[in-house]
Structure formats: C-alpha cells, structure tokens
C-alpha cells in the first residue's frame, strides 16, 4: 500500500511555495548589477597604452592585433619598427573574455569593463578599431571596414572561402603599403592601387551578405 506520509509531505512542500516571493529577475526591465571583478568587454586607455604588443602575444585566440591609429594615416604598418605607434584593435566575436591580455599589459591601460551586452546584426560590427576600443566613438560600417583593410582580423572574421579570398587581397594590400614605406612607389600610385584593392574587398564582403556598404 502506498504510505500516506510519502504522498502528503511533497504536497506540503509544494504548497508552501504558493506564498513565497518569485525568484525571477524581469530582465530587461530589472537588471542585476554585475560584481566588482566582472569580466565584460575590453577597454583600452589609448593615452596610457604604449603599443608594446604584449596583449597580442598573450591572447589565446588571436583576437587582438596592433593597428595604426587614425592620426597615422600614412604609416607603413608592415614595418615591425612602427609597432610602437600602433595600438590594439580587437574582434569581439573572437574574444573569450578570459582576461589574459589585461594581466599581460605592463601599463595597465587595458581593462575589462562591466558591460556584457554584445549584440550586432553582422560580423563587421564586432570589429573595434583602437579609438572605438577607447570608447571615443563608433564608426559607420563602411569606414570601419576601410580602417581594417590590410589587417588579418578582417579575413579571420569571415571564414570559409571568403576568408581565403580576403586573405589574398590583404596580402596584396600589405605588399603595396610596404612598397610605399620603402619609398618604391609614389603616393598617387599607392592610393590608386589601394582603392582598387578596396573595391575588390568590398565586393567580397557584399557577396558575404553585409549590407549598407
């Protein structure tokens, strides 16, 4: 025979929950405050950063890459000596939020903020230039892609056959920039070649499906 207490006791427990306050947090109307040490999106203080590249080496996932700043328009970024004038750029889609880059930074300019809401409708929105990383501004999509041309983060953001094509174009881009840096071609020549390559890259990205460019 079924023992009666084994039936009554669970019923009592469940009944007691009719009178308790629900445990839910009605997100997004109420939000929970993250803790002090919460590892959210990365932020970089661009004035403290010295462009050493320790963060780039420490990252397990090749998320960061040193990139020329907006004020260094004509920098030859393929020359290893110009590294000190470059600052880290990152692809939030690849970031693990592990915090190893923050530990590697010697000047403590990289920090992890407490934002955790990363939403975007296309892959290119996840690429952050150094100025965006310092929370100074947010560029429109076409500008941002143009800034990322010639760096490896752009092809790696796409993958598959698009990655192969974009990687080829990136290598050509870098070759042109390096020739200008060694003063082998003139500025007009460089601009012409680069705009051709940019058009081709935009073609590939449009084929992938990113809109608005």
């Amino acid at each position: 025979m079924v023992s009666l207490s084994k039936v009554i006791r669970p019923l009592k427990v469940t009944f007691s929950y009719l009178f308790k306050r629900p445990f839910t947090v009605m997100y997004p109307k109420e939000t929970l405050q993250p803790a002090e040490r919460y590892r959210g999106i990365i932020q970089n203080d661009i004035n403290r950063c010295i462009g050493c590249g320790a963060c780039v080496l420490a990252c397990p996932n090749q998320t960061l890459e040193l990139m020329a700043r907006e004020i260094d328009v004509d920098l030859d970024f393929t020359n290893p000596k110009s590294r000190m004038r470059m600052r880290p750029a990152l692809d939030l889609g690849r970031c693990l939020y592990c915090g190893l880059c923050v530990e590697a930074c010697p000047t403590r300019s990289l920090t992890l903020s407490k934002e955790y809401s990363v939403i975007s409708m296309n892959r290119v929105d996840m690429l952050y230039t150094p100025e965006e990383l310092a929370r100074e501004k947010r560029l429109p999509v076409k500008e941002r892609i143009r800034r990322f041309m010639g760096y490896y983060l752009l092809p790696k953001a796409f993958g598959g056959k698009y990655e192969k094509e974009l990687m080829k174009l990136t290598e050509e881009y870098r070759a042109v920039v390096s020739k200008y840096g060694k003063k082998e071609i003139t500025k007009e020549e460089r601009d012409r070649l680069l705009s051709e390559l940019e058009e081709k890259m935009f073609e590939v990205i449009r084929e992938f499906g990113v809109e608005g460019i």
């Binding site: 929950y17 009719l18 308790k20 629900p22 445990f23 009605m26």
Partner: peptide
C-alpha cells in the same frame, strides 16, 4: 505553475 515553481509566469 509559475507560482509553484517559484518563478514568474506569463507577464
């Protein structure tokens, strides 16, 4: 069901 589960149901 929501009450017994200690959560908020359809709102």
């Amino acid at each position: 069901l929501g009450r017994f589960h200690n959560r908020r149901s359809i709102t």
